[in-house]
Amino acid sequence: MSEHNKDDDGDTDDRARTRIGADLIIPVAGLAFAGYYLWSIAGLPGMAQFSGRFLVAVLVVLVVLLALRMGTALARGEAEFSFADLAETRKTALMRWGVFALAIGFALGIPYLGFTLSIFVFLLLSMLLLQVRPISRIFIIAFCAAAVGYLLFIVALGARLPRGPVETFLAGIF
């Protein structure tokens, strides 16, 4: 089991790979989705159900195989049950999920603030949270990124991005 857990592109860390637990999240979530999928297609014409039923059956077989493999490894004492793969320090957690929360805020705010202002605010707050210093650097990066985005997407391409106060104000200039 130990060597199996490592992601092929090497993204996961290099700690000992004898922990089982966190890697059950994806199969369990997959099975839950599969259950919902089957429920949602009940009553549809046969052909509309075909792919779903086939894929769910294959998924169940694969997850059973994975569970057997894990069970054997646990029984043989080659693995321990733990969620440590997902463990993170308080600081990392705060940074990671803080930025994620800001990203949610960005998505919710963009219809009101417009593209340019919201990306500026998002970059500013994220880098503040991630402790990029000095603060002047944060301002310069956020400003330049927002300006480049504005020039490329709004001015050059005329993309259908949400417009806000900045776009309205600058519309007179460009």
């Binding site: 997959g30 999928y37 949602s40 297609i41 014409p45 779903g52 998924l59």
Partner: peptide
């Protein structure tokens, strides 16, 4: 396989019946 199942979300290709 989970990817394929996610890919099978939406109207089916014959009857346009929405799925999941």
């Amino acid at each position: 396989i989970i990817g394929l199942l996610i890919g099978a979300i939406g109207a089916d290709h014959i009857y346009s019946a929405p799925r999941a």
